[in-house]
Nucleic acid binder design. Structure first.
Length: 941
DNA sequence: ACCGCCGGGTGCC
DNA sequence: ACCGCCGGGTGCC
């Protein structure tokens, strides 16, 4: 199993923390299992293109036949020998409703499929019985007609239907037999698109992972190891690997080479995959994917790039500040008012208090979530940071000097809201203070709609939500009018869903150079990668058909050649270093060692007694569900029981407020409401990996329906809107009402619950073990700082008591803190002052991507996480760039308990996560089986 | 299109 | 000749 790709899943996890803050979402645990649904039902809500895509993933070759393309002289599209062509239905054709257009790789029409054949194909294509693909064997000199080799791909169960249908029209498919068939395609239609005769042996996921591992294992290529000094205005000295990144990025931006798989032949540029040729030189991708692992300094690398490579390798011309006077003039002089923590309204949006100057609210007021739904723009929300404004619009007005360059100099940076302020900080930190850089934060209701304002900037910062929102009304979106010098997508894996508006909004930006920053370039599936290639405008892969035919299908079918192509492609445009990767054999970053210990805990007799009795009760209930076959319909209840057991492993008091709700029956609306709230809280906080079955992504803005199914609010609202007046639950078809949706109460503090109990405080075996370790550690070295991590914030509260009693100074970081308090807590903890806290109580999922707790070199993980990636992410908060000490992690696991079983499941998940790339999602029945197995394993049935 | 097909002109040897 | 044959017009769907 590869460590590197473990990181991948961790990163995905991180990303969930950032947006949803609620659920894990491992790709191999699609949502269907929980909701007891068939994926087909879900797909029907999705765009047709998405489902077509799914179908193609499992397509087999039905056979091939020869056909004819006619009417060539009427169209401009030309085709080479052995060039791939696309077939497209044209039902609106006035002469023949069966018409089938033939287009070349460029999308130019070449001709039509001959009438009689089109008559046979129309139905097959319209009802998606098969995808029909063409290759023209001799295309070059045909004037009126040309032959085309058609291959039919589809689901196995449609094979006979297609064959019979064709037969009715007098056509017959040749099976892809040796000799003519496969040879023909293989040898003549570009490099190997061969379809094995036997059922495809899928390359195992592990194999694929290993193959990809090798790509970045040890970077030896010249262009990735050469170093470059940044422009003089970059105030921070770059580390060697950062100079390498800069050199590589600059070389990519200034590349005059042809893109991969293109050759110059005679006077034409020739694509060796599709055999397409054209006169115009295909643009290379002036950019790529910066896939460095977190902590290696992607932000700094990007800032260095912006300042260092303006045109022809020359640095960005910037204004030097003569004295601070000119700067002062530009300042926002009005003193910003403080904005108190907003109240949380029904939608979970945090509103700032009324009457506060719109312009000068602090980051504290900003939305915690960056979702399409947050309607941030309609709200009187925020300027993200006052200093942003300082540098932003107001400054730019007085920086009269416009660089004579006709081209725009502006770089657009798109990032999640949670890292927006980080970008501003980093610019401030890394750009010499003597330099004036125009940075405009395009965010908030007062953002300029003048594209001229934006194009004048050096840097424009915005968020994915704003980008997507603007895209919806493109005509009014300056973002989409400016021809950017450069667009940088930070946390670029957020555009991994090619059907999402967010992705489309990003792809639609016009830019000379395009970059994706992400810690997880290769996340789960090839399709994720395709989104990135779309954004990079990688010819010809931005078109799904060519991507599919040249890369995705060959790879998923186990074609070695296809895999090599994919590898070459990824390697060509990606720079990725991990904490452990090496450059010419030398570690890119020396990190101190990290050791994980498991401390087994034996429950006291009293604790064991309670545990066993609850366990027996739970086993009985779950056993009954098993017998009834209703485990999955009672999934939330099962989770509740399991959570209770896990809590009992930590502290008996914890389990008291997780009552088993049972089946909602004749309860009052208030009770039902409460039960639903409890259910959604449970599902989201249990650490199981739930996803929204509509967007198939991690839950953003989770809501629960009356029928107890959880979706993203935007997703389910769209369903309700489109199915009005009688919308049905996508999962169980029960009636849906907008007003019945129950939301996940954000950031609820659980301290009140525990405070009541604090009078009757009792220790537990686990707490005692922790306290023992902590006091021992303090004796040994009182300066060492520790993280105490739990998924149960109430447990953290319980731990507070003995910490106080033993005189430990500690801070606490969990989801209930405001942004401001959060920052305070982190700064306080990171401080090296002698009286600074040595302990941080940390809720497992608190904080976003960048949470840096390197002051700690000890981690006490109080309870095992459902998802091992969550633990890894948590460990990485202190085991990262800047950590000077050895990191020692202690995991407390109660013997003979659900916790031990969770550890076993974790191990299995690690294996799965390592192999997630290139595998399809499990079918819903496989999923159910997996989930049932998991529950069985957890409760020992 | 150096084809096929259409339809008009034409018609012993 | 209700044929054959000739040669011009013509041509995706």
């Amino acid at each position: 199993m590869s460590w590197m790709f473990m990181r991948g899943s961790i990163w995905k996890y991180l990303q969930c923390g950032q947006y949803g803050r609620t659920g894990d979402s491992l790709h191999h645990f699609p949502p269907a299992f929980f909701f007891n649904s068939e994926p087909e039902e879900v797909l029907s809500i999705d765009e047709p293109s998405a489902s077509a895509d799914e179908e193609m993933d499992s397509a087999i070759l039905f056979g091939v036949m020869r056909g004819n393309v006619v009417g060539l002289s009427y169209y401009t599209g030309v085709v080479n020998n052995n060039e791939m062509v696309a077939l497209q239905r044209e039902p609106s054709n006035p002469y023949d409703k069966n018409a089938v257009k033939v287009n070349n790789v460029n999308g130019d029409q070449v001709g039509h499929i001959k009438r009689e054949l089109a008559a046979a194909l129309a139905h097959i294509m319209d009802s998606r019985l098969a995808k029909v693909e063409g290759v023209v064997p001799f295309g070059a000199k045909n004037v009126f007609t040309m032959p085309v080799q058609l291959s039919f791909w589809g689901k196995d169960e449609n094979r006979q239907v297609v064959l019979n249908h064709l037969k009715q029209y007098g056509f017959k498919l040749d099976p892809m037999a040796k000799g003519f068939g496969s040879n023909w395609i293989t040898k003549r239609a570009g490099p190997s698109y061969s379809a094995p005769v036997l059922p495809a042996v899928q390359m195992s996921a592990e194999q694929l992972m290993t193959e990809f591992d090798k790509l970045f294992e040890d970077l030896k290529e010249d262009d990735k190891t050469r170093e470059m000094e940044p422009a003089e205005v970059v105030g921070t000295p770059l580390l060697p690997h950062q100079k390498q990144a800069l050199a590589w990025m600059v070389s990519r931006e200034n590349s005059k080479e042809l893109p991969l798989f293109w050759e110059q032949r005679n006077n034409l540029y020739y694509n060796t995959l599709t055999n397409f040729a054209e006169k115009e030189k295909p643009e290379n991708v002036l950019g790529g994917i910066l896939g460095d692992d977190m902590g290696l300094g992607k932000t700094l690398e990007a800032i260095a790039l912006i300042l260092t490579n303006f045109h022809d390798g020359k640095p960005l011309p910037v204004e030097k500040r003569e004295n601070d006077q000119s700067y002062q003039k530009c300042n926002v002089t009005e003193k910003p008012e403080k904005c108190e923590k907003g109240n949380t309204n029904k939608l979970g949006k945090r509103k700032c208090e009324k009457g506060i100057s719109k312009l000068h609210k602090e980051a504290t007021c900003s939305f915690q979530k960056d979702t399409d739904f947050d309607l941030a723009l309609a709200e009187p929300a925020t300027k993200v940071k006052r200093k942003a404004m300082k540098k932003g619009a107001i400054v730019s007005q007085c920086s009269a000097k416009v660089v004579s360059e006709k081209k725009t100099r502006a770089t657009l940076i798109v990032c999640p809201l949670s890292v927006l302020s980080n970008w501003i900080d980093q610019f401030e930190q890394h750009v010499k203070p003597t330099v004036h850089l125009n940075i405009y934060v395009y965010y908030g209701p007062d953002r300029s709609k003048e594209s001229a304002v934006l194009s004048k900037q050096d840097v424009v910062l915005t968020t994915y939500s704003v980008l997507t929102h603007d895209y919806a009304c493109r005509s009014n979106s300056p973002l989409h009018k400016v021809k950017w010098l450069r667009v940088v997508l930070d946390e670029g894996h957020t555009i991994r869903n090619p059907n999402a508006q967010q992705t489309k909004a990003a792809v639609d930006l016009e830019a000379e150079r395009r970059w994706i920053l992400t810690g997880t370039p290769i996340q789960n599936s090839l399709k994720d990668l395709w989104s990135l290639f779309c954004f990079l405008k990688l010819k010809p892969f931005a078109d799904r058909e060519w991507w599919h035919r040249t890369i995705q299908r060959p790879v998923t079918m186990g074609d070695q050649e296809g895999l090599r192509r994919l590898q070459a492609l990824v390697k060509n445009i990606t720079l990725r270093r991990t904490k452990t990767s090496k450059v010419n054999g030398k570690a890119v970053l020396e990190l101190p060692e990290r050791k994980v210990f498991v401390q087994h805990i034996t429950l006291s007799e009293d604790e064991r007694q309670i545990y066993e009795s609850v366990k027996n009760e739970s086993s009985a209930v779950i056993g009954r569900y098993f017998n009834e076959g209703t485990v999955l319909t009672h999934y939330a209840d099962v989770l509740a029981l399991l959570v209770r057991l896990r809590q009992l492993c930590c502290h008996p008091h914890l389990a008291k407020n997780t009552s088993f709700s049972g089946i909602p029956g004749d309860s009052t609306p208030e009770e039902l409401q409460e039960k639903l709230v409890n259910k959604i809280k449970l599902v989201l906080s249990s650490g199981s990996d739930e996803e929204c079955t509509i967007c198939l992504d991690s839950l953003t803005f989770p809501v629960i329906t009356q029928c107890a199914h959880v979706f993203c609010k935007p997703c389910i609202c769209q369903v309700i809107r489109s199915e009005q007046p009688d919308a049905k639950c996508p999962l169980c078809r029960s009636e849906l009402r907008l007003e019945h949706l129950v939301e996940f109460p954000l950031e609820e503090s659980e301290t009140s619950v525990v405070e009541k109990k604090s009078k009757e405080w009792l220790p537990s075996s686990k707490v005692s073990a922790l306290m023992h370790s902590l006091t021992e550690l303090r004796k040994k070295n009182p300066m060492i700082k520790s993280l105490i991590v739990s998924q149960f914030t109430a447990f953290l509260s319980i731990i507070e008591t003995p910490l106080r009693e033993s005189g430990f100074v500690f801070v606490r970081l969990d989801g209930s803190l405001t942004q401001k308090k959060r920052i305070e807590a982190i700064q306080c903890f990171q401080s090296s002052a002698p009286e600074s806290p040595t302990i941080m109580l940390l809720s497992l999922k608190a904080g976003g991507v960048g949470l840096n707790l390197t002051a700690a070199s000890r981690v006490f993980l109080m309870d095992p996480a459902w998802n091992p990636a969550a633990e890894e992410q948590c460990f990485d908060r202190c085991h990262r760039l800047g950590q000077k000490k050895e990191v020692i992690i202690t995991k407390f696991i109660v013997k003979n308990s659900v916790e031990e079983n969770m550890v076993k499941i974790q191990d299995k998940k690690r294996e799965l996560a390592a192999g997630a790339f290139g595998t399809k999602k499990m079918s819903s029945s496989e999923m159910k089986q997996a989930k049932i197995k998991e529950i069985k394993a957890l409760i020992d049935i």
